[in-house]
């Protein structure tokens, strides 16, 4: 469960103060599928980074699964990212020097899972996104849609409760984007909490709940739950 209590992220550029997030209150429960929309520069990515423990709020409190993340060290935050959160980015962010299989394997390596178990988990994750046949390829040699599938495999290989996706369909054509969205639906049905960031209203429409960010302020748009 994610609870933002009066979260602000403030950047000081020169003597100008930018509120990338402006006193955001927010609760996301297990199993939800939340779409966050908003124009460019509204603070969507900032929100996701804080939610994903990649960044820390300037003000306010973030409780993850009932525990304020302030208490954690950097190493503990790394472990939390590794076990509880799977990230999916607009530009896929696969490592080009590694094969698809090796990319998917990385989170498990950092978790200290031993080799035999890594192999079966990687195979499962790749099968789940339909990428088993490309496992020996490098990211450069497959299509964008396939890269995003691989990135999703990497995000789910540790079986995290929470999946954070920042514009996952932004670099894909609409048909491929739909396929990826279908995957997210499957993952949500399988029990993953999904927070999906987009500025495309039709993509957001597939979420059960939609939040709107504008100039760092959040507003509830729709909640089907």
């Amino acid at each position: 469960m994610i609870v933002f209590k009066d979260i602000s992220k403030i950047y000081n550029i020169g003597d100008e103060t930018v509120y990338a997030l402006d006193h955001v209150d927010l609760t996301i429960k297990e199993g939800e599928f939340v779409g966050i929309i908003g124009p460019s520069g509204s603070g969507k990515s900032t929100l996701m980074h804080i939610m994903g423990c990649l960044d820390i709020a300037t003000e306010g409190e973030y409780d993850l699964d009932g525990q304020s993340i302030d208490v954690y060290t950097d190493n503990e935050l790394a472990a939390i990212r590794n076990k509880k959160i799977g990230f999916i980015f607009q530009s896929f962010n696969l490592l080009n020097k590694l094969t698809i299989e090796e990319n998917v394997e990385l989170p498990l390596i950092y978790q200290g899972v031993h080799a035999a178990k890594r192999r079966t988990r990687v195979a499962e994750a790749l099968a789940q996104v339909g990428m088993s046949h490309r496992r020996k390829h490098t990211p450069n040699s497959i299509s964008g849609g396939q890269q995003q599938r691989a990135a999703i495999a990497r995000a789910i290989v540790t079986r995290p409760a929470l999946i954070l996706a920042d514009e996952p369909t932004g670099n894909l054509d609409s048909k491929t984007g739909e396929e990826i969205m279908a995957l997210f639906q499957e993952l949500n049905i399988a029990g993953h909490t999904i927070v999906l960031i987009t500025h495309d209203a039709s993509v957001a429409a597939q979420a059960k709940r939609i939040l709107m960010l504008k100039d760092g302020k959040i507003a509830e748009v729709r909640d089907d739950n």
Partner: peptide, 16 residues
């Protein structure tokens, strides 16, 4: 730099 960021997002500790 990007690679380092990705690895850290995936749970790499500074020591790794």
């Amino acid at each position: 730099t990007k690679e380092i960021g990705i690895r850290k997002a995936l749970g790499a500790k500074s020591s790794s």
